[in-house]
């Protein structure tokens, strides 16, 4: 689908920036992430379907930000990944104290879209139906992923 970069950026840029700012906190990092999102989408513009782009951009923005959060975990100047801590806590409020320590283990070896699903449902408060439509899965598939995440967190809690 032919895409006019300028129109596309003016229409969706502010929305993508707000999304990145919300997940990453820092304005400059959010602007860098926004650029990454548009580069990804426009590089594959010929493969875009002619439908509402906001959903695609929102999803890519979320993934770009989650990748940045993962990679900065080992860079102390960037602080803690508060978003993932929140997800861990909301997955099971009783795990509050263990949440920070469990994060790496929680998302390690999980498909990338499990973190996306968790963010959409627990952070953005999308219903299971909305998440399913957003990521192109069935509602039961989404439910299973979230259930697996909860079980994994419980298992991590009982480990010595």
């Amino acid at each position: 689908m032919p895409v006019d970069s300028h129109t596309y950026y003016c229409t969706y840029g502010p929305m993508v920036l707000r999304r990145c700012r919300k997940l990453l906190g820092d304005d400059q990092t959010a602007r860098d992430a926004m650029h990454d999102v548009f580069v990804q989408v426009l590089t594959h513009s010929e493969e875009l379907a002619d439908q509402a782009p906001s959903s695609l951009l929102f999803r890519i923005a979320t993934n770009v930000c989650l990748n940045r959060i993962r990679s900065r975990r080992r860079r102390p100047e960037d602080g803690d990944p508060e978003l993932l801590v929140q997800i861990a806590q909301e997955t099971d409020p009783a795990a509050r104290s263990a949440a920070r320590a469990a994060l790496d283990a929680l998302f390690r070896h999980e498909p990338e879209d499990t973190a996306l699903i968790a963010v959409l449902h627990l952070h953005d408060r999308m219903t299971l139906q909305e998440v399913a439509a957003e990521v192109g899965m069935s509602v039961s598939g989404v439910r299973k992923r979230l259930e697996k995440l909860r079980m994994k967190l419980h298992a991590l809690e009982v480990q010595p």
């Binding site: 229409t11 929305m15 707000r18 919300k22 509402a52 782009p53 906001s54 959903s55 929102f58 439509a133």
Partner: peptide
Amino acid sequence: DWLVERAALDEVPPA
């Protein structure tokens, strides 16, 4: 917030 964004763009998903 995300739903307000979609509404502002007239792209509220059917779900």
